[in-house]
Amino acid sequence: MDNLIEIKNVSFSFDAEGEKRDIIKNLNLNIERSSFTVILGHNGSGKSTLAKLMNGLYKPTNADGSVLVDGIDTKDETSEIEIRRKVGMVFQNPDNQLVASIVEDDVAFGPENLGLTPEKSRERVDEALKAVGMYEFRKSTPHHLSGGQKQRIAIAGIIAMRPECLILDEPTAMLDPKGRAEVMSIITRFNRENGMTIVLITHFMEEAELADRVVLLSDGEIISDGTPKEIFSDIKTLKSTGLDVPQTTELLYQLKKNGIDIDTDAISVKETAARISAALHLEES
C-alpha cells in the first residue's frame, strides 16, 4: 500500500501547571495516498493535535514516535518547508487564516513564500481561485465576503501551493448551512477528480458520510476505524464518545430500540428512507 502519511507510536503531551497531560496516546495511523479519511472526535479528543502532528506543526513528544510524510520524518528540521508544501492545512476560523486584504494577494502568499516566479504565482492563483469558484472575487477584500466564501479563499491559498494532501481542521464549524455545503462539495471534488488526499477533522457525523474511511478518536486514542457504514452501524460507541449523531441515524437507532428490525448504518435522507421502507414493508403499495 502507498501511504502518504505514516504515524507510528506517536504520543503528544504537555505540562499544564506542573501536571503532565497526554493529548495523544501511543497512536498508530496510516493515511493512504488519494484517500478521503474523516477523523471524528468530540471537543478535546485530541483531533486538532493529531492534525497538527501530520504536517509537523507539532512534533511527537516521545522519542520513539515518528510521523513520516512521503517518507520524510517531521522531526527533520531541514525538510520543514517541503512537508508543509506537501501537506496543506486549513483551519476552523477563516478570518484568522487570511493574511492580505485583497483576495488574490492572499492566495498568492503561499506561492510567494515558495519563491515561485511572478508568472508562475499568477498562474497558480488564478487556477486555485477558479477551483474554489471564487475567481470573480479576486479583487475583493475578504472582509466583505461571507464566512463560506472566506473559507473557500483559505482553501485556495493552500491549493495554490499544489499540495498532495489537504488536512482540514473543522473547516465548517463556524459556517452557516450554505457555507458548509459549499466547502464540503469542494473538498469532495478535489478528492474525486484530482485524486487529492483528504483528511477531514470534524465532529459532524454527516460530513463523514462521503469519506472512504472514518477514524473515531476519543481521549487521544483510536477507538474504531473502518468504512462509514461500519462505523455508523455501531451507534452505541459513537454516542458513548459524545459525538453528534445526525437525526437520520438517530431515528433508525430509536426504531431499532423499539423493537423494529432495521439496519442503522445510514446517514443520508435517501438511505434512511430506504431502510425504513424496507423494515416496515412499505414498498409493496
Binding site: 445526525p246 437520520t248 431515528l251 435522507v269 435517501k270 428512507a273 425504513i276 421502507s277 403499495s285
Partner: peptide
C-alpha cells in the same frame, strides 16, 4: 430532517 425522510417515503 425527519420530515424529509417521511416525504421521500411518501413519494412511493
Amino acid at each position: 430532517v425527519v420530515t424529509k425522510v417521511l416525504k421521500l417515503i411518501n413519494e412511493k
